[in-house]
């Protein structure tokens, strides 16, 4: 995906220091603790990488596992993967339910990357494409059940762009409306703030890997 995103020049580098993120060596020493939290990949093999990450295969080859992106992250959203990540050991991952990407406007993680695994041509946070949010469990979604939740929508940094609310009549009560959050993957950056903020024990909105936008016309 990364190489398809239109990137232009580089913005001013300015990142917050003092992150307590764990570089590879440290992580290996105390890896057990870290890996408890890790969901390095979802069931379909998707791993949420920091903004600007190039396509996964090339990313694994390019990333030098230096941990500089994690150190640059002011929210400690970026962690270094442990042994269970296999060949991905020591690569940066984001586990949104723990700490999503808050989309710093100057993208300090990207600026910190020495290897090109995070593409420095990326400077507009709205062009970030780490993945896309998907409502995976409509039956459980409180908003779709007619409750006034919509936390994911109101927390979305691209509110009304990446997630919109679609109102429709609630047949169950006959006099209320269902305000359903709808994700627009062409706008969603995959930051995972929605996944983090979902109030249900198992988030019904999660970040998944990007899929190609499929058309409704059949082009032979």
């Amino acid at each position: 995906m990364g190489d398809e995103t239109p990137h232009t020049g580089m913005s001013r580098r300015q990142f917050l220091k003092g992150s307590a993120a764990t570089p590879l060596a440290l992580m290996l020493a105390g890896g057990g603790v870290v890996s408890v939290y890790l969901r390095p990949a979802d069931a379909r093999g998707f791993t949420l990488r920091p903004p600007g990450a190039i396509a996964e295969k090339r990313f694994l080859a390019a990333c030098v596992r230096c941990g500089k992106c994690a150190q640059a992250c002011p929210y400690q959203s970026i962690r270094m993967a442990g042994g269970e990540a296999g060949v991905g050991i020591g690569t940066p991952v984001i586990i949104p339910r723990e700490m999503p990407c808050y989309l710093c406007q100057d993208l300090p993680c990207v600026r910190a990357c020495p290897s090109g695994a995070l593409d420095k041509k990326l400077e507009d946070v709205e062009k970030v494409r780490m993945g896309t949010a998907v409502i995976i469990d409509r039956e459980s979604c409180l908003s779709i059940r007619g409750l006034r939740c919509e936390v994911c929508y109101r927390q979305c940094p691209l509110i009304d762009k990446a997630i919109t609310l679609e109102a429709r009549h609630n047949i169950r009560t006959g006099e209320h409306s269902i305000l359903e959050p709808v994700v627009h993957k062409e706008k969603c950056v995959g930051c995972g703030i929605c996944e983090k903020s979902c109030v249900l024990p198992k988030p019904v909105i999660v970040v998944q890997g990007l899929v190609e936008i499929q058309k409704d016309s059949y082009d032979f």
Partner: peptide, 19 residues
Amino acid sequence: KGDPAGPVNKGLNCIKGYF
């Protein structure tokens, strides 16, 4: 849970009421 017999909300809640 929201009370379906409640004339105001007909079984619905907001997220505060849910918890």
